[in-house]
Design a protein around this nucleic acid. Sequence first.
RNA 1: GGCCCCGUAGCUCAAUUGGUUAGAGUGCCAGACUGUCGAUCUGGAUGUUGCCGGUUCGAAUCCGGUCGGGGUCGCCA
Length: 599
Amino acid sequence: MKLQRTHTCGQLQHQDVGKSVILNGWVCHCRDHGDLLFIDLRDRYGVTQVVFHRAQDAGLHTAAKTLRPEFVVAVQGQVNLRPEGTANPALPTGEIEVLAQTLEILNPAAPLPMEVDEHAEVSGETRLRYRHLDLRRPGMQQNLLFRHRVIQTIRRYFDQLQFVDVETPFLTKSTPEGARDFLVPSRLSPGEFFALPQSPQLFKQVLMCAGLDRYYQIVRCFRDEDLRADRQPEFTQLDVEMSFIGEEDIIRIIEGLMVTVMREAAGISIHAPFPRIAYREAVDRYGHDAPDLRFGLELVDVTDLARQSEFKVFQAASASGGVVRGLNARAASEQIPRRQIDALVQFAQEIGAKGLAWMRIEGQTVHSPIAKFFSPDLLVQFQKRMEAGPGDVLFFVAGDLKTASLALRHLRLRLGNDLGLIPKNTYHFSWVVDFPLLEWDDEEKRYAALHHPFTSPKPEHLAILEEKPLQVLARAYDLVLNGVEIGGGSIRIHDQEVQKRLFRLLGITDEDAEIKFGFLLECFRHGAPPHGGIALGLDRILMLLRGLDSIRDVIAFPKTQKGTCLFTRAPSPVAPRQLKELGIQPARAEKPGSISHEK
RNA sequence: GGCCCCGUAGCUCAAUUGGUUAGAGUGCCAGACUGUCGAUCUGGAUGUUGCCGGUUCGAAUCCGGUCGGGGUCGCCA
């Protein structure tokens, strides 16, 4: 190209006045004043104002009149100080402008299906469909730039601590445990399949057995499950594993990482160590194993008191082994009018609660549709337990632990938002520890690993592994930021005998184990160091640090909730020949006319 | 797989709850304008109300189905 840039659009300032420069970029705004024409030229680095005067060069001015938003142009001109009073303090380049002397239209742009302007509101669907335009917007560029900076910081941090970045295969073995696998048919082994990794879990353990000692990888993982705002079928994990260490080592390394990332990439000062909370306590106090600790509004158990009431719903819950739990919206009586309560009741029911009981404390009296089921003395006890006073509104959910916890967790977050209890720009990291090793899978009628089958039980619980499996705690830990699980890991089992006992509990026979993870067990037989690690959800961390509601905004080309890509139109049908080569026959009939991309 | 919200001009939305020819902002096109900066002013063009079917004298509006976007439960070791 003839006019290659000498500067970027975010670079020129008053010290450059007088220079002859060339800028390349996209036309962002045109402000046509007749004989005077302003163009905002945009690139990744910023925006610079370019001026065209008819009096100065009529031909050039006429050419500039044809410019439209998102034309790609090269402008040669002179850097001038803007006239007195016309500087734009909102722009780093706002003191200067470039008086155009040459204009080259490198590429015109057809009328656009969406505005690139950062102020324009565009629906998520349109943004994904025209992602190339969406990604031109400064906000999205900042998101991607921030992602890059965080990744660079992570790499520097681990490199300094002698961690080795090792790539693990994407075409690997399907494992029946865990999430649904994405399968890739093998042409050379007809009828057989690779799976895309849900995580490099087994490989990083093999790397420990191989003596790599300290491993990390920023790696794509794949899980064929339903999507959420914070779940994509392919997502990026910061994967870490270390040898000859215990929980404290992993925790210390990761706390150091988060402090460094926050400081260097986000410019935010946070302090380690992070608070720790036991799984059981998290569920009891917040209804969730990833509690948002930025605010209080804690759950309170009233099961024992509820048993004494005449309210059948409360009686039934406590009689059947369930719970009655509540929370106190302190001094919120005026902020929660009756209509709002009705909305909250409906909200709780949509989450799965049978109902939502409430009491409004006004002066010495309790206003509540269920007050009549409580003796005066019991009402006093309820208020005491809930630490309730005049102006408070109490909410209660009765049911099995899981349902009640879920409903109250959502209710707590909703009230926290509605009542403005959640501080902005606060980053509250915490560890959730003391997870149970196992849970009872009622559908499969067997125990299942809460984390994964290589997670080590706490050594002091090994004795009761077979007798009281559900009471055994794991050497596992989750990292939580603002109520979102951003990572989890564990110390692994490296003792073959313990591993065998656990497989037996999980209903995995020796034969099964050999077929499924034989390669790892073989490693363990050949000298396995004690090891453990963690995996962090990079997309979620970025989302939270950028104050976004979805990881879609920190991923360049994300999928929709139905798992499709609106930009490329993937997935799509393939040619019959491709399927034939792979030995695959779809069960569903092809849509007529849908076969297009013959290779 | 279940439940909920949404789908109207290129884009973002409205349409007095079933009633005349579906509007606004923005963008687009044309014109005016020498200091704007999300420029301003004047004028103009733009609709299969996602799609299919039903109810009705009459449907953007109600009903059924379907497709698409989003949230959530299940699922996500």
